[in-house]
Design a protein around this nucleic acid. Structure first.
Lengths: 202, 202, 202, 202
DNA sequence: ATATAACCGAGACGGTACGTCCCGTCTTCCA
DNA sequence: TGGAAGACGGGACGTACCGTCTCGGTTATAT
């Protein structure tokens, strides 16, 4: 999928035949991204992706197992450098920054797409795995580092299960995203971090 | 000839014509409940509900706008007396009981159906409204009472937004339900309540 | 349906059984007639007849075995004094008058309804019988009389099967009605009678 | 590379994409033909055609606008070797042969299907056009040739409108087919031709 | 140079579920 | 006890989207 794959051509035998069209791959993801924004996950059909991208359905199904896999790929291609470790020096500030960013993301139109993908994951294990491995786990890993740093600095309690701690910070936002019972704004982020940190700080 | 209306006086006037068949309604919900358990939301089709219940598809569509509306109804008809206020005398114990119950529910087969409905709500506003009004809001209302009680007793901090407090308690469980990154068990419930309560208690 | 109906009960013995039945019958036929004209046989549904006439579907089905029976009745109630024997004194003139009348009828909007009923009769034996007994047979009987009169006067050949003779006169018009390959006008009527009579006259 | 066929050259260019399955087309018509014979036009549903032919409903609706269009096609595919000009040398004999053949066809089980299609044509203009263009018009064209030949030989009167003449010969049979008031047999055919020819012959 | 793969666009196909429509019957209550 | 209101079972309809499968034609590397 990346250039490093096609680079060698020396020792390792380059596969014979016409190589996969990188242009087609990009066109599919681009078309899918637009469609997701305009029509949502439900309204994004394989035929529409094919028509808009100019890539045939057969080709799409050759490279992705389902339209949801395309959607996950398209979605993630937008999210490239999103979850950067703020590292402000204060665990409280770090968390506040991260939770604010998360909530801002959830509240965006891309966040609606994310909610739809999480929804799809409820009945499609492949989507669940993809989402977990490529989005949720990396983010949690980043926050776990942030956590360890805080523990190391003595700012955070060492006796708290890091998983529970992270869930306490991220869970409320996800809850609001999928249940929609309360707003997703900065004030909410700050209040959640404020209260949660009282339980997490030493 | 006294009353211009020949109303039966039983509060609300009896509508003319054959009344809606209560038996048919129950048969539909019963069939749907079974199908949801056996095949999940995706595998539960209108035709199957019709066939199993003996109620015609036309009748189903007369009373419910879509199969998801039937599913919500069927699901809720199982949940009637679920969210009872424990009222142990201690806010901590109350919360622990409620969160444990919630997580037990989420982990059950009915919980999977619930997750599927929440998923559907992401793209079907009608389902979202139904779920919010008939399930989420009532539960939150119950917990809010519990919260007020704790504040009244001086156990809980009055300066915390109740919405945020409830989200802090319920959010992590919902997060695990939809993201599936960590187990939904009693230990998780207890750890979440333990840490959250440190932030919420005075 | 109106108060004036239930008011009198004075001199004439009021039948206990069905005071409004005749009115309902007329309302049904009237509504059906209008619907047939406006929407054709296909577009005339039992529910529409019921709604427009104010007569319930149950009552309609109590009196008529199917909506087509209603349509036949409604149709025939319009045709009351249609097929009168012209009796001009000349068999040729008699036939010309009758065939002209028939073709004029076929070409009218009522003729289209007739065509639709004939069509329905192809798959509904009850309609076929009704149409044959109440419309086709009486007309043919009238024309047969006309035929016998012509034979008696020596104008027509006695060695021709009267059935075949009548078919020769009426068949072409019916053919044009259902196949629509040629116009249904007076000139056509005259040409058909002219040529047919040459074969039928002595 | 001599003449094989890399070049279209065969008049019309080969369209891109998978070509329409000729086998599917035949299977649909075959299945429909059987169903028409066994269950009539009313009893022939799209689902049955689909099930029996192994061709999906979507494909059927892609190529035919309605089940009636399929029925017309299926019906006509049976009639391939239909209206052959007898050309006996005598106009009388020609007509007798053709009318006999027509009446034999009308009386057959295929004739019942034909009647049902004519019936359908009364409310479905598309069926009417199809039937007229592909069945009625060609047959009439053949008979018109036969007529011209007779006129040329001096056997038939030149002053008779050919349309009226043909209607006189075919109308009675159609009349009996749709009205069913008299038998469709050889004797009827002969009597009709005998009497009609007296009006048509010079 | 040429053969051989693997690629690609177009688009037809089988399958499954959907939600609608109309028919003729049934149930309830009213006059 | 007939009749209006209207719910019901049954069954066909035509549509939508999915993922698969030919077609003919296009690049690449390998000989």
């Amino acid at each position: 999928m990346s250039d490093s794959d096609s680079a060698p051509a020396s020792g390792r035998a380059r596969r014979a035949g016409r190589p996969r069209s990188e242009q087609a791959r990009r066109a599919v993801l681009q078309a899918c991204t637009e469609l997701l924004r305009q029509r949502g996950l439900r309204g994004t059909t394989t035929d529409l992706i094919s028509a808009r991208s100019g890539v045939s359905k057969a080709t799409i199904y050759k490279w992705w197992p389902s339209k949801y896999a395309v959607a996950v790929d398209a979605f993630l291609s937008e999210m490239y450098a999103e979850s950067s470790d703020p590292d402000t020096g204060s665990a409280y500030e770090d968390f506040r920054t991260v939770v604010r960013g998360m909530i801002r993301f959830y509240a965006s139109s891309t966040g609606r797409v994310f909610a739809a993908l999480v929804a799809e994951a409820q009945s499609d294990p492949a989507v669940a795995v993809e989402l977990r491995d490529r989005l949720i786990t990396p983010r949690r890993a980043m926050v776990r580092e942030l956590w360890e740093r805080g523990v190391g600095r003595g700012e955070l309690r060492a006796d708290v299960d890091p998983e529970a701690a992270i869930d306490l910070l991220f869970g409320p936002a996800m809850y609001r995203l999928v249940a929609g019972h309360a707003p997703l704004d900065e004030a909410a982020a700050d209040e959640i971090v404020r209260v949660a940190m009282r339980g997490l700080a030493s």
